[in-house]
């Protein structure tokens, strides 16, 4: 049992005219090794929630347990937590600051107080995991494409050896191939290292293709929490909160409403293809 959130509330600017409750009574369990998608419109509380998970924001009330320990408990090491729960912000490439790729990735492990040899070993390993070979080590971040910069930023987090990897819209602004490359790398890490991944995204298609569980946020609350096919079955409610289902879900729903005997629980192209072929035969 990796992360447990109990009755979490967060209020911005408490005691002023700008008081705003950003999170309301959140209760979630996130077991080890899950691949989770988090969706919700802008301002629904997604980013505020994930910043609680590595202690960047402290809850107004409620508790978060990481591996059974209360992270707000006395003497709990936030530094330890932050090396275990890695958070990749939106547009993380804006945070690259070192003279070259290799130094940038070394920054995290260096702050963990490791020896130079171990730091460099971790940096090489992390860059390898995101698919950047040694020809990139001495390049300035300015010489890289948008997708490459983003992979360097993700490597910087991986070098900390997190058990939980949280990515806030890792594909915004990338071309379709760049988007697939990043998400494939993340899926591979999830598979091979068995790390927990929380993917915050505005792309319903991406979420449907990769994750096993979707948490839908709305107005600071958990609106839905289920498998992709069950979440997207609520496509009308999702539209009501500024979201949508993948296009293929609409295709089977439309066919169903036109009298087809078809499985409407599809969320990916492959599933839709099989469902349509079955319904045709």
């Amino acid at each position: 049992m990796a992360i447990k959130i109990e009755r979490l509330n967060y209020i911005y600017s408490e005691g002023t005219a700008f008081r705003k409750q950003a999170l309301k009574d959140i209760n979630l369990e996130i077991p080890d090794g899950q691949f989770i998608g988090m969706i919700g419109h802008t301002g629904s509380g997604k980013s505020t929630l994930i910043q609680h998970l590595n202690g960047l924001i402290r809850a107004t009330s409620g508790t978060i347990y990481y591996n059974g320990e209360n992270i707000y408990g006395e003497g709990y090491s936030m530094k330890e937590l932050r090396s275990r729960v890695g958070l990749v912000f939106q547009y993380p490439e804006h945070q690259l600051f070192e003279i070259d790729v290799f130094h940038d990735v070394c920054f995290g492990p260096k702050n963990l107080g490791l020896c130079q040899e171990e730091i460099e070993e971790r940096a090489r390993e992390a860059l390898d995991q995101v698919g950047l070979d040694s020809s990139y080590y001495r390049k300035s971040p300015f010489e890289l494409s948008g997708g490459q910069k983003r992979r360097v930023a993700i490597a910087g987090i991986l070098a900390m050896h997190p058990q939980v990897l949280i990515l806030d819209e890792p594909t915004a602004g990338l071309d379709p191939r760049g988007r697939d490359e990043i998400l494939d790398q993340v899926a591979k890490l999830h598979r091979e290292q068995n790390i927990t991944v929380i993917l915050v995204s505005h792309s319903m298609e991406d979420v449907a293709n990769y994750v096993e569980r979707i948490i839908v946020m709305n107005k600071g609350q958990v609106f839905l929490d289920d498998t992709p096919s069950r979440v997207f079955a609520h496509y009308k409610e999702l539209e009501g909160v500024g979201l949508a289902a993948p296009q293929v879900t609409y295709v089977t729903q439309t066919l169903k409403s036109q009298g087809w005997d078809i499985d409407t629980s599809v969320t990916t192209i492959e599933e839709a293809k099989q469902a349509i072929l079955r319904a045709m035969s």
Binding site: D175, P176, R177, Q247, V248, I269, A272, L277, M280
Partner: peptide
């Protein structure tokens, strides 16, 4: 388009796959 690192809308791709399956 795929060779140019691009994509097509999801329904277009679904139709393309269904064609390949003989529809």
């Amino acid at each position: 388009l795929k060779s140019l690192r691009l994509d097509v809308p999801q329904v277009t791709l679904l139709a393309h796959e269904l064609r390949k399956s003989g529809l």
